[in-house]
């Protein structure tokens, strides 16, 4: 849920990165951190295990310029992708304004992607949200790997009707192709949605 603070003249949008374990959610957020002007970013908070797996969440606050006199702030969160962290994932989804689903392009992760998408839908339903009605984009990550599936196959699994905007990305490659495109797309959808509900 967007948070509008008239006293501070700011609006805060919460965006959650979702997807199976090791798909690259944390890598996306770290790349966004490193690619953002230092004045525009806050501290990156990562709650992770010793093996650098997300334990609870990553959190990155960004500030964008003002629109109509209101500062726009983005709060990016990533969920822990490992299956058994289901309860934590659900907590982090609460109050989200938009969701990015990061898929792992590697063939070995085909099933994991599909299961994670089902898990996302269930968690959204638990809060009464419908994936077709929320600002939602998909990112096919790890396009740089030779083991990656063709995009058509990923699309058939995760976006069969082509209903959602989707992007190819490689969050570890130099320049992180696709990472900012994905973020911009979801922010746009959120703002358009806010305009509509007005």
């Amino acid at each position: 849920m967007s948070f509008i603070n008239y006293a501070q003249r700011e609006i805060i949008l919460k965006i959650v990165y979702y997807g199976p374990g090791l798909c690259g959610k944390t890598t996306n957020i770290k790349f966004i951190y490193s690619g953002t002007n230092p004045d525009a970013r806050g501290k990156l908070v990562s709650l992770e295990t010793k093996q650098e797996r997300t334990l609870f969440f990553d959190f990155l606050p960004l500030s964008l310029p003002a629109i109509r006199g209101f500062k726009t702030r983005l709060h990016l969160y990533s969920v822990p992708g490992q299956l058994f962290y289901s309860a934590s994932r659900k907590l982090i989804m609460k109050g989200a304004d938009g969701v990015v689903f990061v898929a792992d392009s590697q063939r070995a992760r085909k099933e994991a992607n599909i299961i994670s998408m089902e898990d996302l839908k269930e968690n959204l339903q638990a809060y009464g949200y419908d994936i077709d009605k929320i600002p939602f984009v998909i990112q096919y990550n790890k396009r740089d790997l030779p083991t990656s599936m063709p995009v058509e196959e990923l699309r058939a699994d995760l976006n069969p009707d082509g209903r959602f905007a989707d992007f190819e990305a490689s969050a570890v490659a130099p320049g992180g192709p696709g990472v900012f495109e994905t973020l911009k797309a979801v922010v746009k959808l959120i703002l358009v949605e806010l305009k509509k509900t007005k």
């Binding site: 008239y6 959204l124 929320i134 949605e193 509900t197």
Partner: peptide, 15 residues
């Protein structure tokens, strides 16, 4: 929008 909006106005912020 997932769940409506939380709004804080000047008056309540002040209080």
């Amino acid at each position: 929008m997932l769940s409506g909006q939380m709004v804080i106005y000047e008056e309540e912020h002040q209080q």
